[in-house]
Design a protein around this nucleic acid. Structure first.
Length: 806
RNA sequence: GCCGAGGUGGCGGAAUGGCUUACGCGGCGGUCUCAAAAACCGUUGAGGGCAACCUCGUGUGGGUUCGACUCCCACCCUCGGCACCA
């Protein structure tokens, strides 16, 4: 007989909700704990990734509650976004109706899993009570000069018919639909996230409890690179060509200059040269090449001589200027100095085109004297040669000295380049937050006044799926009055990228119904920052970077008094099926719903937490879920194994010891999110109970139930009731182990000879070394190993082992 | 190329420098039963031996150590991020 999980789960889900046991308010005298999982996009049904993410979070939330913390554990829906529009097109429903319907579904499924959320705090970003604050924050940024509109070459997804942020382009493809992204000249809204780049980088050091790889990914994304901008001069006109390098120590080896094909100077310097026509053809050819192809590794670098020369400012040498496709306009100054002897790309290019090389750094121990002995560029450290007054220095010393000297004589200056670009936030979509801007013929760009917020998203709109912002066809929306001069004006018809919505939702959860500001400062002061954040690694760059930026901005506004929103971050691994990520397109989805029906939510939770450590990817296994179910039944059955008159059974000190040991280990494991081993330790205690059914097991069973409560809450709550408790198990204090129970009187010591296990002995824990030695030497099992050989060394690891060296 | 994570039984995975493989899955055997399922109990790294027991075994090769999955060096492979980044 299986335990009646269905009845139990429904009953407790109802009761918890009715008794509001997970609803919280700030209580200044109590320690708070804000536990947050990344809120879901409401796509319809929950998937195993959600189940895993929220199960991990739920264990932590319930565990912290039982430890006495005032735990904020909210949930909501990241409800704006393109899938709603696609669904609208396909199913002829309004995006709003589709989204709200999905939310209803998901809410029901989340409740079925028994997650301990404060449902009173539920938010949806597509509701105007939420998105008006997106607009409010946008206007604040506008006020501070952090929002601007400009015409720029932007990423455009022809399939989604909208612009994309740099962060949304992955390998030249749209992050959502995986189609190739093209470049387009468009006037678009940007947020100046680059104004915060230094702080975004520096404060990474404060994130001591974030996974190393997330920190690294953010560092890479920010891409700070320190070097020198060197002023080369055009020979004919003395015009300055700035060049950025991080290897100023190789400047004396610069034997030619390369401009990006799009560089504005190119057309100027070829004018009238015999090479003019050829160069123009080359530029034309490159411009037609796909960017992805051009940037691909291993493709042969192509280039052409311009016919003009530049002057190297350190030695007044005349060097040829080339144009080549391996130099990018977007990075640095769009021009490089080429040092073929010390840069591999330059080396290959120089070989191909017979350009001169000069060695200026001698690698230690290398006998290479002339460039034609080289098979590859020497990019490592060494001693400066052929470098004027810098000869003899190590190249690291030379880097510093050359930079200083250049600044002094005015031929260059120290410079820092970043990879991070401003954040393009306008989207040509309907289902998003309208950008609160008005265009007036007289006043130009006018921000909507705060009092006029929200700029509501109109209901009646035609989603055609072809071209431009759907809002631009909604006359009643577009036509408006200028807030300044009250003459006729037009509204901005682009909407905001949905990453804006999720950049501050963790603040909204603190006071979800507040109407004066995005959040109540006092409530935020109590709950924030988030103590533990849990979500997928796919958000390592975009969402987490934007959230960090928003937090810093709101701090500068004086609304917050901290500058990092998430203290601890756990990135959970993906759920795989047959070694592949579960996904709709692969058709290998396992739907949680039938699993819940067949085994119950507690079994699914237990299984998914036990299968692998939270941060590692896990493989779905039907067999193992049966195992989890079996275990819960085994736990349940213990109720019937506790005899009516347990006092008649003998007290079992061994079991009591084991119980305390388990409390200690499970507590430690839950604290560090080693959920799989926490479960295994509870299993061990259960096994121990089954081995001791002829003794009094009551206390041990009670312990199992409490320790299991965060993991299988329904089962634990029901057993707790049946064990005679009136209060919810989640109002119980987490048990404390007593150290005196963990002290052993007799221990097993391992005896090794030359590091190999040869025997084991049982000895009193407080045995002295001389006595121990006697016992060891008398051990019969050791005789054949020792024979008559003298013992050179007697190594004792107290309470563990003895190693004899012979 | 740079950065990060990892490589342990048939499988998922445990192991503050000290008994490799906890816990679970799967396999094998038993108890109960007319029988089966369920449950409960036992067993399960490989090779050798009648047996006590022995040898080998944590990606590869070295090193440090009385002793290395763990620390150091070199390399191989897998996964993830960044990248003609100047």
């Amino acid at each position: 007989m299986n335990y009646p999980f269905k009845k139990i789960e429904e009953k407790w889900q109802r009761k918890w909700l009715r008794k509001k046991i997970f609803q919280v308010k700030p209580q200044p005298q109590r320690k708070k704990y804000y536990l947050l999982e990344m809120f879901p996009y409401p796509s319809g049904k929950i998937h195993m990734g959600h189940v895993r993410n929220y199960s991990i979070g739920d264990v932590a939330a319930r565990f912290k509650m039982m430890q006495g913390y005032n735990v904020l554990h909210p949930i909501g829906f990241d409800a704006f976004g393109q899938p709603a529009e696609n669904a609208a097109l396909k199913n002829k429903v309004h995006p709003q109706a589709w989204t709200m319907n999905c939310i209803d579904w998901m809410r029901r499924e989340l409740k079925q899993m028994g997650f301990a959320y404060d449902w009173e705090r539920e938010i949806s970003t597509c509701l105007q009570e939420y998105y008006r604050w997106n607009q409010w924050i946008f206007l604040k940024m506008y006020e501070k000069g952090l929002v601007y509109k400009k015409e720029a070459v932007v990423n455009w997804c022809p399939d989604c018919e909208t612009t994309l942020a740099n962060e949304e382009v992955i390998d030249g493809k749209c992050w959502r639909c995986k189609n190739e992204v093209v470049q387009k000249d468009l006037e678009q809204w940007f947020i100046k996230i680059t104004a915060y780049k230094q702080r975004l980088l520096e404060d990474l050091d404060k994130l001591k409890y974030w996974p190393e790889r997330v920190i690294t990914m953010q560092k890479n994304w920010l891409g700070k690179s320190e070097g020198v901008q060197i002023y080369f001069k055009l020979k004919q006109t003395q015009e300055i060509i700035p060049v950025f390098t991080t290897r100023q120590d190789t400047i004396f080896g610069a034997t030619y200059l390369v401009l990006a094909p799009e560089h504005p100077l190119v057309k100027k310097i070829i004018k009238g040269n015999p090479q003019e026509k050829e160069v123009l053809e080359f530029i034309d050819k490159v411009s037609k090449e796909s960017k992805i192809l051009r940037l691909a590794c291993g493709v042969k670098k192509e280039g052409i001589f311009t016919g003009s020369y530049a002057i190297n400012p350190v030695n007044n040498e005349q060097i040829p200027i080339w144009v080549a496709d391996y130099v990018l306009l977007e990075y640095g100054t769009g021009a490089i100095m080429a040092v073929p002897a010390h840069d591999q790309r330059d080396f290959l290019f120089a070989q191909e085109h017979n350009l001169p090389m000069r060695i200026v750094i001698q690698a230690p121990g290398s006998r290479i004297q002339t460039p034609n002995q080289m098979t590859e560029a020497c990019e490592g450290p060494g001693i400066q040669v052929n470098s004027g007054q810098f000869d003899g220095l190590t190249n690291e010393q030379a880097k510093i000295k050359i930079a200083a000297w250049m600044e002094e004589v005015g031929i260059g200056k120290s410079q820092v380049y970043w990879r991070l670009r401003d954040w393009l936030i306008s989207r040509q979509r309907y289902w998003g937050t309208p950008i609160p801007i008005v265009y007036c013929d007289r006043c130009g760009i006018v921000p909507v006044p705060e009092d006029d917020l929200p700029v509501k998203l109109p209901q009646k709109v035609k989603i055609s799926g072809c071209g431009g912002s759907p809002l631009s066809y909604v006359d009643s929306f577009v036509r408006t009055k200028c807030p300044k001069c009250h003459s006729r004006a037009r509204r901005e018809t682009d909407t905001m990228a949905t990453f804006i919505d999720s950049s501050w939702y963790f603040l909204r959860f603190c006071s979800p119904r507040f109407t004066q500001y995005p959040f109540d400062k006092q409530e935020v002061a109590y709950w924030m920052p988030v103590d533990q954040y849990i979500g997928g690694i796919e958000h390592a760059i975009m969402h987490l970077l934007y959230s960090r930026f928003f937090t810093k901005f709101l701090r500068d506004l004086g609304l917050l008094d901290f500058d990092e929103p998430f203290i601890r971050l756990l990135t959970q691994g993906m759920v795989l099926k047959d070694g592949e990520v579960m996904s709709k397109s692969r058709g290998n989805i396992v739907d949680p719903d039938p699993i819940i029906k067949k085994y119950g939510a507690d079994t699914l939770r237990l299984y998914i937490l036990f299968a692998a450590p939270p941060e590692v990817e896990m493989e779905w296994s039907q067999q193992n879920i049966e195992g989890a179910f079996r275990f819960l039944n085994r736990v349940w059955r213990m109720l019937t194994l506790i005899p009516k008159k347990s006092k008649s059974k003998t007290f079992n000190p061994g079991l009591e010891k084991r119980m305390h040991k388990t409390i200690k280990e499970v507590t430690r494991d839950l604290e560090s999110f080693k959920l799989n081993t926490a479960i295994s330790r509870i299993m061990e205690l259960v096994n121990e109970i089954y081995q001791n059914l002829n003794t009094d097991i009551t206390a041990a069973v009670k312990t199992v139930v409490i320790l299991l409560a965060p993991i299988a809450p329904h089962l634990a709550e029901e057993m707790w009731l049946r064990l005679g408790h009136k209060e919810s198990i989640f109002k119980t204090n987490w048990p404390k182990y007593e150290a005196r129970f963990l002290e052993e009187e007799v221990i097993t010591m391992v005896i090794q000879i030359n590091g190999k296990l040869r025997s084991k002995i049982e000895v009193p824990v407080d045995i002295n070394e001389d006595r121990l030695k006697e016992i060891v030497l008398a051990d019969k099992k050791l005789k054949p190993w020792i024979q008559e050989r003298p013992i050179k060394n007697f190594i004792l690891v107290p309470k563990k082992l003895v190693n004899l060296v012979i």
